[in-house]
Nucleic acid binder design. Structure first.
Lengths: 285, 285
DNA sequence: GTTCCGCATGAATCGATAG
DNA sequence: ACTATCGATTCATGCGGAA
């Protein structure tokens, strides 16, 4: 059985009209942040952001199944020395639309952007907001269990603080080399804090988020042959993750350049991803 | 020169009236969460939380110096399957009072409370909201610098196993001398994500945060002989941290039981804390 | 075949300068 | 005055080339 991958070029609000009601199991997306990526996406002003996003979230609510989940990756920027409030305002408005704000996961970016300022430290985290249509959403917790036990308890305890943080990141992402060891040990459920580095060495595109991020949520909230949607596909990370995990995927991207890259890349990347996939397979059992 | 420590028993709003305008350099507090700890504090309903807190934050704005900072440790609880929105509403309302919402730090609780739910993972983080009165607040970034990531990777890797164990055993009871060498090496500024374990061994108070948490902010936002305020003193962690770092401290606690405990404990705990302090002192130089 | 260095590169932010 | 642009600052990561 083959999975289906569709990528459409156009404005998210328009293309979403063509999708059927209650057809999507999971939405994972990272929309352009306010006033960011001006060169590629034009940049939505901070004070227009909520107004811009609400028509899209309304359509997303329509296409999502009652058992489905919407994961929104977003972070407010600093304006005039203060954090902007549009993310909070967006949550409040989306609840009025009928969304349930179920949870807020934290993505701890280990390799955040460098810099020094007199009144501020580096920003090392982003929000991963979980919204649902009903309280009866599907969640497959066993698919993302992480190894625990003596390895983490005793070995890590003797390491330095920085080492411990580094190793925790591996645990959170579910990757590592000694998978065979993990299998014989105890497994534990993860928390709502994810430790992942951004992918900066990628040549073709500025990767929005690492492959592990959508992969983690896809494993957690869908099963094989479910349908995953990303209305801001960008470089296609969510779609590749979905296809790789044998989920049907739908992508929308407004920029033709990215659209073509994703359309071609799906086939191209399959082999590369498949190699990595073995790691997932082990962990998913 | 001696530092001064005052602890008052009473309602925060009332006692704050007696404090002078522009007299406090730093406020660090963890107010009772909505509907939590009903047995001890009576529990403020989630839908009344903002209304309850605003008179207090208004007084805090008055007593804080223009160069001062207010750190609010808070996390919304889950109600009826959803995260409550009172923290977001509180931020929006406090901005209307004149507070600047400068930053949101994340406290990653490494050993968070265990448990399993069908639709939710363990909650491993809390918000540390930074508010300011003006943009010209004091910040002493050098006081909280941490060793660089590269340092752990290369330097530590070359040490023998016994060396590593010996050094780490010293950490528990105060640092060894050779750490002073590390300090002259590569240090980096931290990020806005704090990795701290919760103190589970705390006997008398239900929801105390670890000593390192207020200590970190006290070092970051004050200098010696500045004044630190905690309007919800609880078991007195903030006050002990302040005194220990030679800052003047003011505490307010509504429950007589805690009030007496803190009042007596300040002297009692001094020795215990002082031993630990050596570790901090090294890092602060 | 490994291990080790060197180097480019980020969903950044501030303050100064220019229109 | 108020907004747009630019340079300086900073550090974890993963790659490629070298020992």
């Amino acid at each position: 059985m083959e999975v289906n991958s569709d990528i459409f070029c156009g404005d998210a609000t328009d293309v979403l009209q063509d999708l059927g009601e209650n057809t999507v199991d999971l939405i994972v997306t990272s929309p352009p942040y306010a006033d960011q990526r001006k060169d590629t996406y034009g940049g939505i002003p901070a004070d227009k952001y909520v107004e811009w996003f609400l028509p899209i979230s309304k359509e997303l609510l329509r296409v999502l199944k009652p058992t489905g989940t919407f994961i929104l990756n977003i972070k407010e920027r600093v304006t005039n020395g203060e954090r902007s409030t549009y993310v909070m305002e967006l949550i409040l408005e989306m609840r009025k639309q009928g969304w349930l704000w179920t949870e807020e996961f934290i993505w701890h970016k280990k390799n955040c952007y460098p810099g020094k300022w007199p009144n501020r430290f580096r920003d090392a985290w982003e929000r991963l907001l979980q919204f649902n249509k009903t309280k009866q959403f599907h969640m497959y917790q066993e698919a993302v269990m992480v190894p625990m036990g003596d390895w983490a308890k005793t070995r890590l305890k003797n390491l330095s603080e920085t080492d411990r943080i580094r190793d925790n990141s591996r645990v959170g992402s579910g990757f590592g080399k000694n998978i065979s060891n993990w299998l014989t040990r105890d497994m534990a459920y993860p928390t709502n804090v994810l430790h992942l580095a951004t992918e900066c060495g990628n040549k073709n595109h500025s990767a929005a988020f690492p492959l592990e991020l959508p992969s983690w949520f896809i494993k957690l909230f869908t099963k094989e042959f479910d349908t995953v949607l990303d209305p801001f596909a960008g470089s296609g990370t969510t779609l590749f993750a979905a296809e790789n995990l044998r989920r049907n995927s739908i992508g929308i991207e407004i920029l033709e350049e990215y659209y073509h890259m994703v359309k071609n890349g799906i086939k191209e990347k399959e082999y590369y991803l498949f190699e990595k996939e073995e790691g997932y397979a082990f962990i998913n059992k």
